[in-house]
């Protein structure tokens, strides 16, 4: 079972910026224990472009699809047997990243 584990940052109250070494250590452990599938940090939402080609022609919009105080700063994909395992890891991840974490199962 795979889960999308999103790291949520808050523009008005951002998490600390010195977390990378701790995150790297945490990632090593995720890999070792077989949970790690994929991970990536994302550039600022200002760098996003929304593409809508449902009409006659593609419309490009500068910025994220949703302007909000809270935004997706990065994510993991984890492989885990059940939600309890993921919630435990996510609690650690939140500490390690100093940010909120959203856990969402893949279909």
């Amino acid at each position: 079972m795979q889960y999308l584990v999103s790291v949520i940052d808050d523009k008005s109250n951002p998490g600390s910026t010195d977390r990378q070494p701790a995150i790297s250590v945490f990632n090593e452990r995720l890999i070792e224990d077989g949970y790690w599938v994929f991970a990536g940090g994302l550039a600022d939402t200002d760098a996003a472009t929304v593409v809508d080609n449902r009409g006659e022609q593609a419309v490009l919009t500068d910025g994220p699809f949703l302007e909000s105080k809270e935004y997706l700063a990065g994510f993991w994909i984890w492989e885990a047997p059940d939600l309890d395992v993921v919630l435990k890891l996510a609690a650690e991840a939140s500490k390690v990243c100093d940010r909120k974490i959203e856990v969402r199962p893949f279909q």
């Binding site: 047997p81 059940d82 856990v103």
Partner: peptide, 10 residues
């Protein structure tokens, strides 16, 4: 079901 909350004792 979707998030696979386990059916067991904690």
């Amino acid at each position: 079901k979707a998030a696979r909350i386990p059916y067991r004792m904690p």
